[in-house]
Design a protein around this nucleic acid. Structure first.
Lengths: 160, 160
DNA sequence: GTTACTGCAAAGCGTTTGCAATTAT
DNA sequence: ATAATTGCAAACGCTTTGCAGTAAC
């Protein structure tokens, strides 16, 4: 699925529900599906303003919320305040590792893990709608240094 | 580990680091370790004020942050704005299911899942510090109705 | 023409902070 | 006595909202 197809999917979704396909929504969707980075709302606004500096913050927030509730975009709580988003249309589900030292986000997929999550929900009689797994890790990159203002996270506490 | 022992552990932790064991911190810790519910900061404040209505919001937030970074308490993003907390001192690690309809939080443990998470991080060469898994489900309780203002979550979108 | 959407600025909400007074050590 | 902690209220950062004007249908 390429960016053009993704845009069409979004447009179709909007029109089917009686929402209008405005120039702003189109621009925002283009930017969202055109980047493969994780971005927050403010960064998305800046990227959009790079193309058309009339777009308002409110519209970016409103459109992002639609894309998220439609399941086209997913938010990840990184603990920095606010969420970071990524588009997931046309991408296989994946989970995240978040380096606690430098803030880097890594993606991974694991079929066994997915199966297990499904099985657990089913075993308890629930329907699994979605899920999010975040592994907080310490990454070993050479450039990994305190974007969060500290050099190493606190040792996992062993008070018991 | 009972509540008294948990309090002692917290007190010891504080004193060892040169923090003072004030009446407010003691009260807050008593309330935190005395409840087995998930609570948010505001609810904790109210519970504390039930005992001593002089406690300030600022102190509750400050103490809660200490307890969290010490690893005595864990926060869970429920998507309602703000986090819900639970004390984990003396409790085995568990993950959460969150009913998208009524907001109910369910806990579960799964050894196989835990092993797999460890293995994944290790395989990529990272040290796993902590992790959080949240399964968003639809619960089947009779009383399960729209605490979130809707009756059923949106169908998982099948646009592809 | 009708109705949804936009941009703006103000308000909202949970949380954090500066500071003078208080309290634990 | 000293230095950490408290309560207060103001500020904060991110997000949402009311409204009058604008654009999609």
């Amino acid at each position: 699925m390429n960016a053009a197809e993704e845009l069409e999917t979004v447009e179709r979704y909007m029109r089917q529900r009686g929402y209008r396909w405005t120039s702003q929504r189109k621009l925002i969707a283009e930017v969202v599906f055109g980047t493969h980075e994780h971005f927050n709302a403010e960064e998305l606004l800046e990227m959009c303003r790079g193309v058309d500096n009339q777009v308002s913050r409110a519209t970016v927030y409103r459109t992002l919320a639609m894309l998220e509730s439609a399941g086209f975009v997913e938010g990840l709580d990184t603990g920095e305040g606010g969420k970071r988003f990524e588009h997931i249309l046309g991408h296989a589900h994946h989970d995240h590792m978040l380096c606690q030292v430098c803030g880097k986000i890594l993606e991974f997929q694991d079929a066994e893990l997915e199966k297990r999550k499904e099985a657990i929900a089913r075993a308890q009689g629930f329907r699994l709608l979605s899920h999010s797994l975040k592994l907080n890790v310490e990454c070993l990159d050479p450039g990994c240094e305190g974007r969060f203002g500290r050099t190493r996270p606190e040792e996992p506490s062993a008070h018991e």
